[in-house]
């Protein structure tokens, strides 16, 4: 067991622990903090896989974007101090069944791919780090070559534009409505 394995198991324990806390804590804000911890330690997992860019984007998007908006929205709610009521036993059973099904599927996929038998996974570390870095990802993302992702990238940005336009059209006042505040 080398240092990478130790780090992996420590990080995996952290992810699982905080993920369990995120769904089991009765206080909404504490659950959001546990979610943040889970997402943050996932970035550590990406780093162990030499995916530097994925790790940085994980922190930037999930911690700096998603969780901040979650916390912000929680702060705006009126029922902040109250504890979330325990969910119905039937729902808990359903969640348990879903989790078991997921585990079974995951095991099946792992068994079919023999993921733990990757030969000499660490031999190509340098090449991996190059491909997972900002430069490698950036070049492939905007390359029109067969292994590039130029078209999907542009389509995703179109989707983002549509979402922005939609958000603005929802937020803007209808014509003729003076709205609140000083006129």
């Amino acid at each position: 067991m080398n240092i990478t394995d130790v780090l992996f198991y420590a990080d995996a324990a952290l992810i699982l622990g905080s993920a369990v806390l995120a769904v089991s804590l009765r206080h909404v804000l504490h659950a959001a903090l546990a979610l943040m911890m889970a997402l943050f330690s996932t970035a550590g997992l990406f780093l162990l896989l030499h995916a530097e860019f994925a790790a940085l984007v994980q922190v930037l998007v999930y911690i700096g974007g998603v969780v901040i908006f979650i916390v912000y929205t929680i702060l705006l709610t009126a029922h902040l101090g109250e504890e979330v009521p325990r969910s119905h036993p039937a729902k808990q059973l359903g969640a348990l069944a879903g989790a078991l099904l997921f585990c079974a599927l995951l095991l099946a996929v792992l068994w079919a791919g023999r993921a733990w038998e990757v030969p000499a996974a660490h031999a190509a570390d340098a090449a991996l780090a190059q491909a997972g870095g900002v430069k490698g990802i950036g070049r492939r993302l905007l390359s029109a070559a067969p292994d590039g992702f130029l078209v999907p990238f542009e389509i995703v940005s179109l989707l983002l534009l549509a979402a922005l336009v939609g958000a603005i059209s929802i937020a803007r006042k209808p014509a003729g409505d003076p709205g609140e505040g000083p006129k």
Binding site: L60, I68, V134
Partner: peptide, 18 residues
């Protein structure tokens, strides 16, 4: 000196707001 130094900067500067 990570390759994505500025992405790192943006990520951790944004954490302060928490």
């Amino acid at each position: 000196d990570p390759q994505g130094g500025l992405v790192y900067l943006a990520a951790f500067l944004g954490m302060g707001v928490f």
